[in-house]
Structure formats: C-alpha cells, structure tokens
Design a binder for these strands. Sequence first.
DNA 1: CAATAGCCCTGGTGGC
DNA 2: TGCCACCAGGGCTATT
Length: 278
Amino acid sequence: MPEMPEVEIIRRGLKRHLLEKQIVNIEVFLPRLIKWPEADAFKSMVIGRRITAANRRGKYLLLELDNGNTLVFHLRMTGRLLCVSPKDEQDAYRKIIFHLDDGELLVYADTRTLGTVYALKPGETWRISGLNNLGPEPLSEAFTEIYLEKILKKSSAKLKSFLLNQKYISGLGNIYADEALALAKIHPQRTGAGLTKLEIARLYQAINEVIAAGIADGGTTFRDYRNGEGGRGHHQEHLYVYGRNGKACLSCGAPIVKIEVGGRGTHFCPVCQLLEGK
DNA sequence: CAATAGCCCTGGTGGC
DNA sequence: TGCCACCAGGGCTATT
C-alpha cells in the first residue's frame, strides 16, 4: 500500500529516469483507470510531450509536461509505476504503458485496478477533489505542532480515523497511522479533543519520525509495493505494531492487538497505548 | 457540517 | 486437496 514514503521513493526513482524524456506513445489496456479525460483525449494531451518534473502531493504523483499539462497518478492499494526497458517488461498486471523516446517504458501496473490516472491542463487541479483538499504533509513547513493542536482540538473523530483523513494531514495511510500512534503511545480510539499538550507533542514528533524512517528505509514492502525501479523497501523490518498482532510489543513485551477502527484494521499495544492516556 | 457505512476490485489465506 | 467466504484498505459517494 503506497503511502507518502512509498510514493516519495517512487517519485525519486522516476525522476532519475524520466526527466527531459519525451512520451512518444501510450498503450491503454484498461481505459477505466483513466478518470479524466477519456482515453483518446488523454493520449492527445500527453503524447509528444516532454517530462519536465516529477512531483508529489500527499500520495499523488505528478508528472509535469512541457505543455503545462500534468499527468497525475494515485496508486491506491496495488498500483505500481516503474521504468523498465522493453526486454524486462513482463508485468502481468500492466494497464498503461508510456513509450519514451529513448526506448524505455514507463509502466503503470495494478493488480486490483483501484488506482486512478488523470491528465490535467493548467489550473485544473479542481477536477480531483482529493488532490484539491489535501492538508499539509508531515515533515513540511506547513505541518507545525500548533497546526496539529488546532485541528485535533476541533475533531471528534477517533485518532486512527483522524490520521487517515487526508484533508487534515496528507500522506499517512493505514501502516504509518498505526505506527505513529504506537510510537506516541496513544490509543487509536481516543479523540483529538481529549489529548493533553504533551500527548500532542508526542504525536507530532511521532508522525514526522515514522514518515522519515519510512523514507529512509525505501518504503514498506508487504506484498505489492515496489519502488520506481522495481526494488523492494525495507521498513517492514522496522515496524512497531503494523502486521505484528500476537507478537511482542518492542517496548513492553505484551502481545500486539488488532482491532477495527473506522472500518480499518488497527494494530496497537494494549499496555503502552491506554484508552485513558497519560 | 461531520462521522460513518458501503463500494470498488482481485489475489491470498484460512477454515472446513 | 478443493472450494469458498473473507479480508486487505485508499478514497469517493451516499446516508445518517
């Protein structure tokens, strides 16, 4: 599941391969993944253009084109975006292939086909409501402890749901949300309004820390995630709680528990992360 | 407005 | 061994 660290690693990989290359052709095997415009118009907006930048906002990947248009990808659960040479192109789940002028391929592959692809003209960000309503990112200047405190105090949502809501903070997904709460030693079912100033400070540090660690480890590969060059991440070796239900808490040794919060599987230590809080 | 339930989608898994 | 219900979960939409 690509979250902000994984998308950032993909972005860096793509940047190395794609800058200044021209997209000379596009093969679309599953048109419904292209959410705007429809496939033919999409192709005409993109074919013949050079890629001038590889950017990211939250979990959205943005390839800027030399005509001012932007190619937007959201990988959702199982989307993969990678640069390969034609002889290595063998992904059974390839859905869109962008042919580059040096013969290399940019392949969008997706097992569960939940990903979304768009081509936008300048100023058309509004077409993607999720992209248009992203909160500040962890590790960014806009993401301050003051900001976090302000929005937490206004929220009645359970913290797990709060952290997953991209309009408050962009980039956290199920893995890093659980990890941030574990590191901060805060129960996922508590609410923002109920946190002490000290807990907010811990949560703020923890969010930045788990995201930074995820990036430093090249992302978390459980099953599907691959970086822009097809390699795996290593952060799965450094997780505190995610996927560790039944295993010993790294801090106190108690078994990690898995529950459902807001419809999402949620992992936490019942000893370190108390409902009452401290 | 805000929280939540349902939905999309396919492959892996666990139970029988 | 084979079958099948169920789960994984990001984010949008409908509902309460």
